[in-house]
């Protein structure tokens, strides 16, 4: 019974027009409801508006019209600081380009969200250490992020996105820059950690293999939702 589940993200008639000459409408009247604990993939061709959608859900950008609710709060009513607090408390991001801080080492990158949140140093260390162990990077903790492989970078990013225990993890083509072995590792870490903690996950992906492992697939085409399918026979186990 889906309707009994708690809604964590909701979009109502959301439009996004990028200003410019000429202006470009990337999303058209999007209605969407996402429930607690769902593992979702958003698929669609390049330029169809997937990233735009994810940025709006993650409070990184504002819609031109329509309403977005994150955990029941109306995003349009929030000021910049409240948006920042929402990002730090409830949302984790993983990007295709890793987006690690080049001036910080592996440990400090994973620790960064806790620093921003104001968690005392003594409490930060065990949390970071444990996550680094889970993603198998304990021995790289002191390395600069420019000195490790792509797969390792994305594992750092995954650890960082989850260190704050977010309610929602948004991953924008997390394996887009990785070979297949590293891709599998990264996806497995995300699935394992998020299912353990009941975190809602939204993957934006081109990879049908990843989509096959999600219970709900949303297909976007030219800024509109073309289909939104719940698959019954989702393989909810490791990729291999």
């Amino acid at each position: 019974m889906r309707s009994a589940q708690k809604t964590v993200l909701k979009m109502e008639k959301v439009n996004k027009i990028y200003e410019g000459d000429p202006p470009f409408q990337a999303l058209f009247d999007i209605n969407l409801e996402i429930h607690e604990g769902e593992i979702i993939s958003i698929i669609g061709p390049s330029g169809s508006g997937k990233s735009t959608l994810l940025h709006l859900l993650g409070c990184l950008d504002k819609p031109t019209s329509g309403e977005i609710y994150v955990g029941g709060s109306q995003v349009s009513k929030m000021n910049d600081d409240q948006l920042a607090f929402t990002r730090r408390e409830t949302i984790g991001f993983v990007f295709q380009a890793f987006n690690l801080a080049p001036t910080l080492n592996v440990f400090k990158n994973v620790e960064l969200p806790l620093v921003i949140k104001g968690v005392p140093p003594a409490e930060r260390k065990p949390v970071v250490d444990r996550l680094l162990e889970v993603v198998g990077l304990t021995d790289k903790r002191a390395s600069m992020t420019t000195k490790i492989s792509g797969g390792q970078k994305q594992r750092v990013a995954v650890a960082r996105s989850l260190v704050n225990n977010p309610k929602i993890l948004l991953a924008d083509e997390p394996t887009g820059n990785l070979d297949s072995k590293s891709s599998d590792d990264v996806i497995n870490f995300i699935l394992k950690l998020c299912q353990e903690r009941g975190i809602t996950v939204i993957f934006v992906t081109h990879d049908p293999r990843i989509a096959a492992h999600t219970e709900r697939q949303i297909r976007i085409m030219d800024g509109k939702i073309e289909s939104d399918i719940y698959s019954r026979n989702t393989k909810r186990r490791d990729l291999r």
Binding site: L60, D80, D81, T86, F93, N99, A101, N164
Partner: peptide, 16 residues
């Protein structure tokens, strides 16, 4: 600039 984006995506405020 990119780093600023990263900090903000992780929840840093404008003031910070």
């Amino acid at each position: 600039t990119k780093y600023i984006g990263i900090l903000k995506s992780l929840g840093a405020t404008n003031g910070e």
